[in-house]
């Protein structure tokens, strides 16, 4: 075979090879806010997995003083039934994360699928799919979720389904928009010229190239899903008592806020911290995955090093 003249052109531009995802990770953790968010999320996951073991008391263990103010024994106080609020907040993390994971999972899968098909196929199918997404999108998300729960009956499962459906159009739109630009790329045409099937083109080439906005949207939606679950539980159509859930606890504490402020404050703070953590991680991911931002961040990093 031909040994074509090997010249300076033969050496790669970058010597050390780092995978793109690892590079993204190192940019992400160099962002202080995102790092903070990641730490909070890590603690949340630990609480969700090991809540029962870590909590000083059971979620529904009673027998303590009613409405006890925060003390060493009960750092977040006790509630109207004499339960330890700290233990309930800790164990409630599982409910929130579970609702977030399942509902975002539903909307992620459904929305990505719809967006890929609509964006890649185009034409009337695109019009039909996206207009029906617009119909869903036209309702306020909490209202739509309440309507779905009203039909299915109030339970945590139905709340997750409702939130999942309500969030699907967001994913469908984000994915379709990205697919529209990626499918016109020359490399897609190049792969088609090799005889690749549509399924291969979509799964192997288009999906990885629209992954960045999907990932960002997932982390932001997580925050909104947890917030929506709290709202639904607050309104009494989500998680049912006595399951510990932050929104439900907030609602229970609302009526006695001048008598026992700790009943509402600590679950509220938990919601606030979780939602903020997901948001800052989402923002950090967006910056880390955007090639333009990325080179700015990298050059800034180099400037500091030098």
């Amino acid at each position: 075979m031909s040994a074509t003249e090997a010249t300076a052109d033969d050496r790669p531009v970058v010597d050390e090879h780092r995978s793109q995802w690892r590079q993204t990770w190192s940019i992400l953790v160099s962002n202080r806010m995102a790092l903070f968010g990641l730490v909070v999320l890590g603690l949340l996951v630990v609480a969700a997995l090991l809540g029962e073991l870590l909590a000083p008391h059971g979620a529904n263990a009673q027998g303590f003083e009613f409405y006890a103010a925060p003390s060493l024994d009960h750092p977040f106080g006790t509630d109207n039934l004499g339960r330890d609020v700290f233990s309930r907040v800790l164990i409630g993390a599982r409910t929130s994360l579970q609702v977030g994971a399942v509902s975002v999972g539903i909307s992620l899968v459904a929305g990505t699928l719809l967006g890929l098909v609509a964006g890649y196929r185009g034409g009337w199918l695109d019009a039909v799919l996206m207009r029906s997404m617009d119909v869903l999108f036209a309702f306020p998300i909490v209202l739509l979720a309440i309507a779905i729960v009203a039909v299915l009956g109030p339970s945590i499962t139905n709340a997750m389904i409702a939130i999942g459906v309500a969030f699907t159009p967001i994913f469908a739109r984000v994915v379709r928009g990205s697919v529209l630009s990626v499918r016109e790329e020359v490399f897609v045409r190049a792969v088609r010229s090799l005889g690749a099937s549509d399924v291969r083109i979509v799964l192997r080439h288009i999906l990885p190239n629209v992954a960045a906005p999907i990932i960002v949207q997932t982390s932001l939606s997580f925050a909104f899903a947890i917030l929506t679950e709290a709202a639904l539980s607050f309104l009494g159509v989500g998680v049912q008592p006595p399951t510990p859930a932050w929104g439900l606890m907030l609602q229970e504490g609302r009526g006695v806020i001048d008598l026992a402020w700790w009943m509402g404050l600590f679950p509220g703070l938990a919601i606030f911290l979780t939602v903020m953590a997901f948001n800052v991680v989402g923002d950090g991911l967006r910056d880390a995955l955007d090639p333009k931002q990325r080179s700015i961040i990298e050059s800034r990093g180099q400037g500091v090093d030098a």
Binding site: Q20, V186, F187, A190, S193, L194, H205, P208, N209
Partner: peptide, 16 residues
């Protein structure tokens, strides 16, 4: 039949 494209920056999938 195969094709070689004009822009070598655009004709390769950046994630592959």
């Amino acid at each position: 039949m195969a094709m070689i494209f004009q822009d070598p920056y655009a004709s390769l999938d950046p994630r592959m």
